[in-house]
């Protein structure tokens, strides 16, 4: 008869925290914030390049010397990435299928472009991370870096980075990726507070501003490295190639 009795009685619907709509989001936010902290830390680490070859290589070596720590961080990051990506994609499709017939005309009043492109900026980040690991960590794309060593016999991360960015194509990939990341965070940062329930009418605007600030700082903080290399501000040390 009437449409009301078709669905199961509401009292039956049960859900666990993780499988609930809100729970999934909370996990997105938790994993996202972990990755965010990594990104910030990584940026600070990378910026040591401006201090010099010795400093950066020492830092890289120092990390290698505490394998338990690095591996735990790596483990957490991998888990975060997997969850974040997996649920990011799942949420995306769920959301897409929540409106099987789309509007013919659809306007946006206040949803930001950043918020509406999360899956694409996220996807961009993901592709980038894969490339980035192959590039600098596993040194697959440019095997020639593997033989770089500094005068103390350490892996010469400093030279590797500079060599990499001297290639305009590679730098471009980085710029695009960094834009993706930053733009992801323009929405991600304020969104995180909303998801954790820490937002209200008074803080809303402030968090939006925070999102932009973080994005800009990250974008500048990271891209200043390839930019400096391209502008020849940081150069390869004597004797490398």
């Amino acid at each position: 008869m009437s449409t009301v009795q078709v669905k199961p009685a509401p009292s039956q619907a049960k859900v666990t925290f993780i499988s609930s709509s809100i729970g999934k989001k909370v996990f997105q936010a938790i994993t996202g914030s972990f990755m965010f902290f990594f990104v910030v830390g990584h940026m600070l680490g990378n910026l040591q390049i401006f201090i010099g070859q010795d400093q950066l290589n020492t830092y890289a070596q120092a990390l290698k010397d505490v394998p338990y720590l690095t591996w735990s961080v790596r483990f957490v990051m991998i888990v975060c990435l997997v969850i974040h990506v997996w649920w990011g994609i799942q949420l995306y499709f769920e959301n897409w299928f929540s409106r099987p017939i789309r509007y013919v005309v659809s306007k946006t009043v206040q949803a930001s472009l950043s918020s509406r492109t999360m899956i694409f900026t996220g996807g961009g980040i993901f592709l980038y991370v894969v490339y980035h690991l192959l590039h600098y960590t596993f040194i697959v794309t440019n095997p020639q870096y593997a033989g770089l060593h500094d005068s103390l016999g350490r892996h010469d991360v400093y030279s590797m980075v500079i060599l990499g960015f001297q290639n305009g194509w590679i730098s471009t990939v980085y710029f695009v990726a960094l834009f993706s990341l930053s733009y992801h965070l323009v929405h991600a940062i304020p969104s995180l507070f909303q998801t954790f329930g820490l937002n209200n009418d008074k803080t809303k605007f402030k968090f939006d501003v925070l999102g932009w600030l973080v994005a800009i700082v990250l974008f500048v903080g990271y891209s200043i490295i390839p930019a400096a290399v391209l502008l020849n501000i940081i150069k390869l040390p004597e004797g490398v190639l």
Binding site: K7, V15, S20, S21, L91, S98, A111, S115
Partner: peptide, 29 residues
């Protein structure tokens, strides 16, 4: 929240588009 999921509504991505059209200007807070 459980029933909301069971009915097939989507998840929130904090777009705030809802607030913009809400005739009673219910806040996303």
């Amino acid at each position: 929240v459980a029933q909301m999921g069971a009915e097939g509504f989507g998840n929130c991505s904090n777009y705030y588009e809802c607030e913009a059209v809400c005739p009673k200007e219910i806040s996303v807070k």
